[in-house]
């Protein structure tokens, strides 16, 4: 019969990972503090002039200033809007293309090969083309972001579908699933762990492409704030913006993708048994 031991051991392991997650956070915090101390020590040793290497306190103060006078939040707003549009297009288009490539042999041989080939191109190399096609505007930036992240998502979706256990296809066909229902209810969910990994990778590519593009374009955003810092020889501002970029990237990765990935891996029965 049903044993309640199952359920209780499951919830205990959940609590255990919560403790471990906390421990991870504490270790990270201690590490960052140590890093700041070393940084401070180097600054105090006066190897470099302060205007080239400002102290962590100065940089932190600059972050706070930026937050208070709203330059940083505004830049984040512009940047986030671009990545939301660009990355959103990538996810929708990438999954659709990945499914199509996995489904149709002809596409696999043509488009599939193209996707593998294009992945060799760093996304920023699309920038000159984007400029010529769209001019100096947001469309060009979003184009670069899409091309930066699209291919990773296409590839992951295709791989995910190729790795769906054959028994799932068998079961679905046996239960009478056909065409669209089969893809929507069985194939895509089965491939989801791969797709999420692809989306995570795609996100980091999109983020990098966007920063690179914003550095070069004269348009409001975090990358532009960096560029402004450079123009005014303001190392503290450059570093402050870098800290913000790192922080945002970490938050999205840890609070978003890593959690989602963990949840899906557990539910899909892929989580490691080693704990």
């Amino acid at each position: 019969m049903a044993s309640p031991a199952n359920a209780s051991s499951a919830s205990r392991s959940k609590r255990l990972t919560l403790v471990q997650r906390w421990r991870g956070g504490i270790v990270a915090l201690v590490f960052v503090t140590l890093l700041a101390l070393v940084w401070e020590a180097i600054v105090r040793a006066d190897f470099w002039p302060q205007y080239l290497l400002p102290s962590p306190a100065t940089v932190a103060a600059r972050v706070l200033d930026g937050l208070r006078d709203f330059t940083i939040p505004r830049a984040i707003g512009y940047t986030m809007r671009r990545i939301a549009i660009g990355y959103g297009i990538s996810v929708v288009l990438g999954i659709a293309l990945g499914v199509a490539i996995a489904r149709f042999h002809l596409l696999e041989q043509s488009l599939g090969t193209l996707v593998s080939g294009l992945q060799a191109l760093p996304s920023i190399t699309w920038l000159p083309l984007a400029l010529l096609w769209f001019g100096l505007n947001d469309t060009a930036i979003i184009f670069v972001v899409v091309l930066g992240s699209l291919l990773a998502i296409v590839q992951a979706t295709r791989d995910g579908i190729h790795n769906v256990p054959p028994l799932y296809f068998r079961t679905a066909r046996n239960l009478g699933a056909s065409g669209l229902a089969m893809y929507w209810r069985v194939v895509l969910p089965a491939a989801l762990p791969y797709i999420i990994t692809g989306m995570k990778l795609g996100w980091s590519f999109a983020w990098r492409s966007l920063m690179a593009a914003e550095l070069i374009f004269f348009t409001p955003g975090l990358g532009h704030l960096l560029e402004v810092g450079r123009e005014f020889n303001d190392v503290a501002q450059v570093m402050a913006v870098m800290v913000v970029i790192v922080f945002l990237g970490l938050v999205v990765d840890k609070a978003g993708f890593s959690r989602l990935e963990q949840m899906v891996r557990t539910r899909w029965g892929l989580a490691g048994m080693s704990e």
């Binding site: 256990p165 028994l167 799932y168 068998r170 079961t171 679905a172 046996n174 239960l175 009478g176 699933a177 229902a181 209810r185 069985v186 969910p189 089965a190 989801l192 539910r267 899909w268 029965g269």
Partner: peptide, 25 residues
């Protein structure tokens, strides 16, 4: 309908959703 030896349930669904999916199909 085939009852397989194992691993034939869809892990992203609950027990009831697994049964319901067959009825949905």
């Amino acid at each position: 309908t085939v009852v397989f030896q194992e691993h034939a349930l869809f892990p992203w669904l609950t027990a009831r959703q697994n049964v319901q999916l067959a009825l949905e199909f």
